[in-house]
Design a protein around this nucleic acid. Structure first.
Lengths: 138, 138
DNA sequence: TAAAAAACGCAATTGACTTGCATTTTTTAG
DNA sequence: CTAAAAAATGCAAGTCAATTGCGTTTTTTA
């Protein structure tokens, strides 16, 4: 899935970020496991490091587009390693919160596919982001 | 836009919710104005009522599917009146946070349309929700 | 119209996330 | 390689959207 086969050290170097134990540890967890993961998930899987540090690392990763933030509207931010060549979405169970990857990519067809897979009451949220004309002219 | 021409009192009655001044006031604001709106926006536009009450009203409205929650990942929930017959999306400027309605509905085509309209660096978030097999069998 | 149920207002609380600051680690420059 | 500079960490305290407890007020029910 995707063409990115750099290791964590190389990714950090490419982003011009210092290579610390904790950053390496977080990044490797994200690169080797299928997310998205909450800060809590990440914190559990690294040997040491407090929450503030995890938050700060992830924020840096996000700024440098190493990870992608996923928002499921439950007030918990989740993150996954951003493999540039792999476009996909997610489905979260409204009941147990389990998150599964969705490879297919058109709205109604996607919802139908999810229904065919056994999900019930499928819905979606879609929001766009961009820089508006006003802001471009500032 | 849409076929819902009930008034606020009727909407509350249909949902079996008590008709209080504040609920009526919030609902009318949402029905007469183009959202989505934050709790702060809503609070500003109703004559009295504290924040806790606004939060509680909106939560009730959401539970009864009178309003729809929109999440733009900035940790502020926004709500719009849920006109069942009008499917649409939004675009928020990453710079000034202004929110505009998007009527069209396919991903790449939508992004292109937004670019044609003058938005720059357009991206989107799309998440699905449903009840998974495991939860259906509980 | 009185009793029961629901909603309100206020203050305190929660929980995800952030920040200030002293200490430690990593990077840079000689 | 090493010392100074820069950046990251750990801890504690703080922020902010949202929630909750509880006594009072409003709305609904019978």
């Amino acid at each position: 899935m995707g063409k990115d086969n750099r290791n964590s050290t190389q990714v950090l170097k490419d982003a011009k970020l210092s290579n610390t134990k904790i950053r390496k540890s977080i990044l490797e967890f994200l690169m080797q496991n299928h997310g998205p993961f909450s800060i809590d998930d990440i914190h559990k899987h690294i040997s040491n490091g407090d929450y503030a540090t995890v938050y700060r690392c992830i924020k840096k990763f996000e700024e440098h587009e190493i990870v992608k933030k996923c928002d499921f509207g439950d007030n918990i931010s989740r993150y996954e390693y951003k493999d540039c060549n792999h476009h996909h979405h997610h489905i979260m169970c409204r009941s147990c919160q389990k998150i599964t990857t969705v490879e297919y990519c058109f709205l109604k067809e996607m919802e139908k596919m999810l229904t065919d897979q056994g999900y019930k009451d499928v819905s979606h949220t879609l929001e766009f982001f961009g820089i508006c004309q006003d802001c471009q002219n500032e």
